[in-house]
Design a protein around this nucleic acid. Structure first.
Length: 808
RNA sequence: GCCGCGAUGGCGGAACUGGUAGACGCGCUGGACUUAAAAUCCAGUUGUAGCGAUACAGUGCGAGUUCGAUUCUCGCUCGCGGCACCA
């Protein structure tokens, strides 16, 4: 009988004792770096969805190993950040302790699933020896001017009591706790990711082995927009205002200007604005409106005319009115737009509401679509545009930009939706930012030799909510000496966000104990880049953008040898609850892998999770499905007890086809069809076994089957391998090759169609000719019947496949 | 609104570069074994008609291309995901 508990325990112990999974670095083998997104250990532990990706990568890693690669397949823990810290606060334990417990729990859960990780390379982002280098990278960025202090208003979560980056929001709410986000001006550290926007976008084209969905999400997130900046003078002043537009061709239709209420121009013109009181009141009223609400497209636009202010259109010198309005954002483009109500929906809506002039300048076939009803926003032919009349929009744009540039009144401009990365958190549980503030020298870096700057122990690690991190309360830590002048200085008390540590962890696995450099150059050159990276889609616009950004920076300063970190990327689809909803305590539909492993075994769970459906697709858990996988394994174990072999050609052929298919499917991550192919083979063997009490393939061939099963069900395969007299682990054996001669069929089922409808199938020699096939087919009763009194118009013969007879 | 992805039995899903639709698994029905149940094994399982051979219909809907369409083209519907007053 299949005693999975005994078998799995036996082999897990054995593998550990023999250090089977230590990374090999033999010179004669090619390398393959296969990586999972490491988890942040929460107190709740794993549910069955988490290991899905790990199982798949484990299968690929095991096959690559058997194929003779040096495989790097590590695992670690991303333990800084809000999830760990909030859990610690809630349960009133020091995060240091709770994180250690969570890590141990996660590890034990992973261990019983039989993964082939090299645990000697384990990485933990909260280890000072690790975050030393996270801090080092930050200092390098600071040196290059990519990290800077800013006091712009940022997203503030009132519940987590910290500032957040744009990437940390979901529908305008805190991604961690769901609280409504406020805008709060505060001093913070920001990383200039926008400097890399164009490279982050353009290089996506190089990543041909990434899922398109992820690339698309990143493109949307970066949000490139090509347009023009044009300068409007403010009449009777020395002020100018620059607007950004993608439709410079419509500038003759500009009937007013809108600037964001926070725009500096507004304060500069304060004296000239005759209704300043009204404007000021409006600006004040917007301050209390959350960003989310203010930028909601469904909300009616509001605004106030700046009386006494006129802007001059650079093309026709026409004077137009200037508004402040909530629908223009100070943080995008120039914070000012030229309003063309005839050709922009937002401007149209605003103009209608406030009774402003609407002037059309683009037509199609001499007509203005939707005139008087809506804005016409497509390209067309220009009119009422002086020298540009009759030009197509696209041509007009080119000519107008040329004119602006020649007259120094504007320029071509690309804007990105991506914002700089707000990099500081007012929380305890993160990497300290290794800078000090000196009264004389300003901001000064801690010397490299003093890294890591360790996170001090603290009595109260709860967030203060004052805009200061809990670190600010430890005066003996805060008060220090300036490394430059030796005078009194204060340490930076903000910490890094949770995404910092995961930006470069894949490099640490390559060289996990290096204390002299981030990574050894030779080792980096050997293992980089990551060949295959697997994780959840929720990281598309967070971790995966940040890591690409840091990697490109490390490339620029010569630390790494490639400008992209991950060659191939696949998304793992979620496993939903049995009820079709997302697994959550709230719905009490969470399935614990420990229970499944205990009841049916790790191997059955591994096989089932791969079999459920396409890897990238979300899928509902089905308890009976695990039982199906288990039955398949039981069947195979029964084969191992048979000592009688009567090799037959059909089964040998099927075995070879299965080896081919499983190999190719693992490579392409079609793991569901790989399992199904093995089930088909097992069914074939089983049928024969029941009839003849023998296996239809030789013992050697049967063991080949066990070898291709091994990555999926490592414990059972290892057990059968040993029982068959092998002394060395199955994972030290070579991956079986299929025999090309044996997968060719002598006979085929020829499909006979009449007018494309199936009328007969004939078992014939695979190399049958068109003539022979036709002769044979027309002898069939069911074919004759259909051909009676009909004229044959055409015969279509696909060798080895089908014959289609076309009749009238 | 824009962009991307998807829709196949009772369910999860399979189908190579256009060539037998429904592999494999779950479930269900009937049978064997059993005092009985569970487990196991055998047979069946897209729908309609027929004892049957077989025929017709059938891959979200409507057209089209083709000897032949789940697959390609055009137009929709619905679902999922991303972005969104981004000028």
């Amino acid at each position: 009988m299949y005693n999975h508990q005994e078998i799995e325990k036996k082999w897990q112990t054995h593998w550990k004792e023999t250090s089977l999974y230590l990374t090999k670095e033999g010179k004669d083998r090619p390398k393959y770096y296969i990586l999972d997104m490491f988890p942040y250990p929460s107190g709740a532990g794993l549910h069955v969805g988490h290991p899905k990706g790990y199982i798949a990568t484990d299968i690929l890693a095991r096959m690559r190993n058997m194929q003779g690669y040096n495989v790097l397949h590590p695992m670690g823990f991303d333990a800084f950040g809000l999830p760990a810290e909030n859990y610690a606060i809630k349960n009133k334990v020091n995060p240091k302790i709770s994180v250690a417990e969570s890590v141990a729990h996660f590890k034990s859960q992973l261990e019983i699933l039989g993964f082939s990780y090299d645990w000697e390379r384990e990485v933990n982002t909260t280890d000072p020896n690790y975050y030393k280098w996270t801090q080092w990278i930050f200092l390098k960025m600071w040196e290059k001017g990519l990290a800077f202090e800013s006091s712009e208003p940022i997203n503030w979560c009132p519940s987590c009591k910290t500032g957040l980056a744009n990437e940390d929001l979901e529908d305008g709410k805190c991604e961690r706790c769901g609280s409504e986000i406020e805008q709060k001006p505060m001093r913070q550290w920001v990383l200039k990711i926008t400097d890399y926007a164009d490279r982050l976008l353009n290089d996506l084209d190089k990543l041909i082995d990434w899922d398109d969905s992820i690339k698309e999400m990143q493109r949307n997130w970066i949000g490139r927009s090509e347009g023009t900046e044009a300068i409007f003078k403010i009449a009777d002043t020395n002020e100018i205002v620059t607007v950004f537009t993608t439709r410079i061709d419509t500038i003759f239709g500009c009937t007013y200007l809108v600037v964001a209420p926070e725009h500096e121009l507004v304060l500069n013109l304060k004296e000239k604005i005759s209704n300043w009181a009204e404007a000021e009141k409006y600006i004040e009223s917007l301050k209390n409106v959350p960003e989310m609400e203010r930028t909601s497209a469904s909300k009616e636009k509001t605004g106030v005319k700046l009386k006494g202010i006129k802007a001059i259109n650079p093309f026709n010198n026409e004077e137009v009115e200037v508004f402040i309005a909530d629908y223009v954002l100070n943080s995008y483009g120039t914070g000012a737009v030229m309003a063309v109500p005839a050709h922009d929906e937002r401007d149209y809506e605003f103009a209608k509401k406030y009774g402003l002039r609407i002037k059309s300048v683009v037509s199609v076939d001499g007509k203005i679509p939707f005139e008087g009803k809506a804005a016409f926003t497509d390209d067309g032919t220009l009119f009422h545009s002086e020298d540009y009349d009759g030009l197509l929009s696209s041509d007009a744009r080119k000519k107008m930009i040329d004119w602006l540039e020649n007259n120094q009144l504007g320029t071509r401009k690309i804007n990105y939706r991506l914002k700089d990365w707000v990099f500081s958190r007012q929380r305890y549980w993160g990497e300290p930012i290794p800078l000090v503030h000196c009264e004389h020298c300003g901001v000064v870096a801690i010397p490299e030799t003093e890294l890591p700057l360790k996170l001090p122990d603290v009595e109260s690690y709860e967030p203060t909510g004052t805009g200061e991190s809990p670190l600010a309360a430890i005066s003996e830590w805060v008060n220090t000496k300036c490394p430059k002048c030796g005078g009194a200085a204060k340490r930076e008390t903000n910490t890094m966000p949770q995404w910092a540590g995961s930006c470069w962890y894949y490099l640490r696995y390559i060289d996990p104990n290096n204390s002299k450099a981030l990574v050894d150059t030779e080792k980096e050159k050997y293992w980089s880049p990551v060949d295959f990276y697997v994780g959840g889609a929720e990281h598309a616009t967070r971790h995966l953008i940040y890591a690409r950004f840091w990697h490109k920076f490390l490339f620029d300063i010569g630390v790494v040898s490639h400008d992209e970190p991950f060659t191939k990327l696949k998304n793992v689809g979620l496993i939903m609850g049995e009820d079709g909803r997302k697994m959550s305590k709230r719905w009490s539909n969470v399935v614990n892998p420990d229970d499944v492993v205990h009841k049916s075994g790790a191997d059955a769970m591994r096989v089932y999770e791969m079999f459920m459906g396409p890897f990238e697709q979300a899928c509902s858990w089905n308890t009976n499905g695990v039982i199906g996988a288990r039955k398949f394994l039981e069947k195979i174990l029964l084969f191992a007890e048979v000592n009688n072999y009567q090799a037959n050609k059909k089964s040998i052929s099927l075995l070879n086809k299965t080896i081919k298919k499983v190999t190719e499917d693992i490579e392409a991550f079609r793991l569901n069809t790989a399992v199904s192919a093995m089930m088909i083979l097992a069914n074939d063997i089983s049928e024969y076994k029941i009839k003849e009490s023998a296996l239809p393939i030789s013992k050697t061939d049967f063991l080949k089957f066990i070898q291709i099963l091994a990555p999926f069900a490592p414990h059972l395969a290892e057990e059968i391998w040993e029982q068959s007299g092998n002394k060395e682990s199955i994972f030290l054996s070579s991956w079986p090759e299929y025999d090309k001669a044996l997968i060719k069929d002598d006979t085929i089922n020829l499909i006979v169609q009449i007018n494309g409808k199936l009328r007969a199938t004939l078992e014939v020699a695979a190399d049958i000719s068109a003539e022979e096939a036709f002769a044979l087919a027309t002898q069939q009763e069911n074919v004759k019947k259909w051909l009676e009194n009909k004229e044959i118009v055409k015969r279509i013969f696909v060798p080895g496949k089908l014959l289609n007879i076309v009749i009238n």
